[in-house]
Amino acid sequence: MHALTRLWEHLEEAFIAFLLAAMTLVTFTYVLFNNVYTFFYTLSDKWTVTSALFSSIGDHLMSVAQDMSWSVALTKALFGWMIFFGMSYGVRTAGHLGVDSLVKLTPRPVQRWLGMLACTCCLAYGGLFVVASLKWVAALLVAKIGAEDLDQFGIEIGFIAVIVPIGFGLVFIRYLEIFWRIFTHRQMGLGLADEAAEASKLAASSEEHH
C-alpha cells in the first residue's frame, strides 16, 4: 500500500511538472514566432541581394504566429488543469500551514477534535462540488460546445471542465485519508505532510551535527 501511495505521489508531481512545462513551451513558442519575424524583415531591408529570401521567411513566421491564436486559450486551459489537479497536492504538502499553526496552540485533545471537525467541513465542501461539477460537466458534454480557439482541434469546453470534478474528487479522498489518520491517532494536523514537524527535525539534526 505504501508503495502504491508513493507511486501516486510521484505521478502527481510529474503531471503537475508536465502542465507547467507545457504552458511554458507553448507561451515561449508563441512569443518567439510573434517577434522573430521582424528580425528577418529588418535583414530584408538591409541586404537587397537576399531581400526576397528574408522577406519570404518573415512572411512565413508571421503567418505561423497569426495561426497560433489558439496558444493563449491552450495556456489558460492548462493553467486551469494545474489549479484543480494541484488542489489535492496542496493538501498533501500542508499548504494550509498557517491555519494548522493556530490549531496547535490548543491542547492536544482539542487539536484532534478540531482536526476532525475541519476535515468533516472539507469533506462536505469537496463532496458538494464533486456532485455539482459532475452535473455541470455532463451538461457541457451533452451540449458539445466547442472551446474558443481550440474547437478547430475538436476540443470542447466539456473536455477542459472535466478536471473540476476530478480535482475535487482527489481533494475529497485526501481529506478522507486525513480524517481516518486523525481518528486513529496517527496524526494531529490537517496535512499529510507536517512541514513544521519536518522543519523542527531538520533543525534538531543540524544542531546535533554541530
Results as ranks from 00 to 15, higher is better:
residue 156 E to I: 10
residue 119 C to F: 02
residue 175 Y to C: 03
residue 123 L to K: 06
residue 26 V to Y: 00
residue 24 T to Y: 07
residue 185 H to D: 13
residue 204 A to I: 10
residue 61 L to S: 01
residue 123 L to W: 06
residue 84 F to G: 08
residue 136 W to T: 07
residue 14 A to Q: 10
residue 56 S to E: 04
residue 66 Q to G: 05
residue 43 L to E: 05
residue 134 L to A: 08
residue 150 L to F: 02
residue 17 A to D: 02
residue 65 A to C: 12
residue 163 I to D: 05
residue 53 L to H: 07
residue 161 A to S: 04
residue 191 G to V: 03
residue 134 L to W: 10
residue 89 Y to C: 01
residue 175 Y to G: 03
residue 106 T to S: 07
residue 30 Y to Q: 00
residue 73 A to E: 05
residue 146 G to A: 10
residue 62 M to G: 04
residue 59 D to R: 15
residue 201 K to D: 05
residue 112 R to I: 02
residue 63 S to E: 09
residue 119 C to H: 09
residue 165 P to Q: 12
residue 44 S to F: 04
residue 60 H to M: 11
residue 114 L to K: 03
residue 48 T to R: 10
residue 195 E to V: 11
residue 153 F to T: 05
residue 66 Q to K: 11
residue 207 E to T: 13
residue 7 L to V: 10
residue 120 T to R: 12
residue 104 K to T: 13
residue 113 W to T: 13
residue 183 F to Q: 05
residue 195 E to M: 11
residue 22 A to Q: 10
residue 12 E to T: 07
residue 96 H to I: 04
residue 1 M to E: 07
residue 63 S to H: 11
residue 202 L to Q: 14
residue 106 T to R: 05
residue 113 W to E: 11
residue 97 L to I: 01
residue 177 E to Y: 03
residue 110 V to H: 01
residue 174 R to S: 15
residue 154 G to L: 06
residue 199 A to C: 08
residue 102 L to W: 12
residue 57 I to T: 04
residue 35 N to R: 13
residue 186 R to E: 12
residue 107 P to V: 13
residue 191 G to P: 04
residue 59 D to L: 15
residue 72 V to N: 10
residue 186 R to Q: 13
residue 194 D to F: 07
residue 127 G to E: 02
residue 109 P to D: 04
residue 84 F to C: 12
residue 66 Q to L: 09
residue 170 L to R: 10
residue 39 F to I: 08
residue 193 A to G: 01
residue 71 S to E: 00
residue 89 Y to A: 02
residue 185 H to F: 15
residue 131 V to E: 05
residue 19 L to S: 06
residue 162 V to H: 00
residue 16 I to K: 07
residue 154 G to C: 03
residue 94 A to W: 01
residue 37 Y to Q: 03
residue 36 V to L: 13
residue 133 S to A: 14
residue 133 S to P: 01
residue 140 L to N: 11
residue 29 T to D: 05
residue 2 H to F: 01
residue 140 L to A: 15
residue 142 V to S: 08
residue 163 I to R: 08
residue 177 E to F: 06
residue 116 M to H: 01
residue 5 T to D: 13
residue 50 T to V: 11
residue 96 H to T: 02
residue 158 G to H: 01
residue 150 L to C: 01
residue 179 F to A: 10
residue 201 K to F: 13
residue 194 D to R: 14
residue 44 S to Q: 09
residue 192 L to V: 01
residue 90 G to Y: 02
residue 70 W to Q: 09
residue 105 L to K: 15
residue 158 G to E: 03
residue 59 D to V: 14
residue 205 S to R: 15
residue 122 C to V: 08
residue 206 S to F: 14
residue 23 M to H: 08
residue 161 A to N: 04
residue 91 V to D: 02
residue 190 L to Q: 05
residue 180 W to K: 13
residue 136 W to D: 06
residue 54 F to K: 05
residue 178 I to P: 00
residue 101 S to L: 09
residue 195 E to Q: 12
residue 67 D to V: 06
residue 7 L to P: 07
residue 203 A to R: 13
residue 59 D to T: 15
residue 133 S to G: 07
residue 200 S to T: 12
residue 40 F to I: 08
residue 89 Y to W: 00
residue 110 V to R: 04
residue 104 K to G: 06
residue 175 Y to R: 12
residue 19 L to T: 02
residue 210 H to F: 11
residue 17 A to G: 04
residue 121 C to P: 09
residue 46 K to A: 12
residue 123 L to I: 09
residue 161 A to H: 07
residue 101 S to Q: 14
residue 52 A to I: 12
